[in-house]
């Protein structure tokens, strides 16, 4: 019983990270209808920038995250301007390949600048806490709380502000949004900014319990794809629910099935889903 609760708690932690990454991915998909394969590279850059800010410039953890969010968000905007905007009329295969090109570049870049070694990120919240018979580090609790806080803020932003509503409007109908006077270019840039920021937050939160290395985004991004297919491409609640479903099934699978194969669970889940329903669960419309 104790193991089960402990694992559920771990699932909640990983699930929070997955949900944040998947949110960024699903926002971009909703706006531009491209699967941004470079999103994993943004996640990785986020981890490295936070680490660099903390270790080299001695910034506090939260300040470092703030810098990282801004920088990675701007990388996202740059990506949209330089790559996806010129490709907006190209066949879909081109976006994917271009995104892969960016991914490869950023990974090689990180390896060039920061080296291929695995690095640990120090955290001011390494204390061990005991609560309700559970033992965990404060960092894990922090991940859950901050992730949920970010999600709530994002939700309020999308639902309650004019700018946020314009993102939703554009994901519903690009031409329609354009027609009622929404500057779709600006909204696209804003979406990439938010998406990059979310990736940076997710990796900065997760890095202290994992490690920082150039390939750290690969597995996470693949799982984020599984999540947004699970939750419906472009759906925001779907990304959050999907993130937690995957988090729980992984942490439980690791304990009760096999720790070696825990990474495979997500992909088997995806293969099964797409085999049964080729357009993903909760897909909108006929196609």
């Amino acid at each position: 019983m104790e193991i089960l609760v402990q694992q559920l708690f771990n699932g909640l932690t990983i699930g929070s990270v997955y949900a944040l990454v998947a949110l960024g991915l699903t926002l971009v998909y909703g706006i531009l209808h491209i699967p941004n394969f470079a999103h994993g590279a943004l996640y990785m850059m986020g981890g490295y920038i936070t680490l660099m800010m903390m270790v080299q410039y001695g910034l506090h953890y939260w300040l470092a995250i703030l810098v990282s969010v801004i920088v990675v968000g701007l990388i996202g905007v740059l990506m949209e301007r330089l790559v996806f905007y010129p490709l907006r009329h190209a066949p879909p295969i081109h976006d994917k390949i271009a995104a892969i090109g960016i991914l490869l570049f950023l990974e090689a870049f990180a390896q060039y600048v920061w080296g291929a070694d695995y690095q640990t990120m120090p955290t001011p919240y390494g204390q061990v806490v005991q609560l309700f018979g559970l033992t965990f580090t404060l960092q894990r609790l922090l991940i859950i709380i901050s992730a949920i806080a970010v999600m709530v803020l994002l939700f309020l932003f999308l639902k309650k502000t004019y700018t946020g509503a314009s993102i939703i409007a554009m994901s519903q109908d690009r031409d329609g949004a354009n027609l009622v006077g929404i500057n779709t270019n600006r909204v696209a840039m804003l979406t990439f900014l938010i998406s990059g920021g979310l990736a940076a937050i997710a990796s900065s939160l997760a890095a202290p319990i994992n490690l920082v290395f150039p390939g750290m985004g690969q597995l996470v991004i693949l799982k984020a794809f599984v999540i947004i297919i699970l939750g419906g491409m472009g759906s925001i609640p779907g990304a959050i629910i999907g993130g937690y479903i995957l988090g729980f099934s992984e942490s439980l699978g690791a304990t009760y099935i096999s720790n070696d194969y825990k990474d495979i669970i997500a992909f088997i889940l995806l293969v099964v889903i797409l085999s049964v329903k080729p357009t993903g669960l909760f897909a909108k419309g006929g196609h």
Partner: peptide, 21 residues
């Protein structure tokens, strides 16, 4: 049975499963 993006993501995952195995 899947198309476009779904096909790319699906095969990406298949490739990863083969690699992991």
């Amino acid at each position: 049975r899947t198309k476009e993006h779904f096909f790319a993501i699906y095969t990406l995952c298949v490739g990863y499963i083969l690699y992991l195995i």
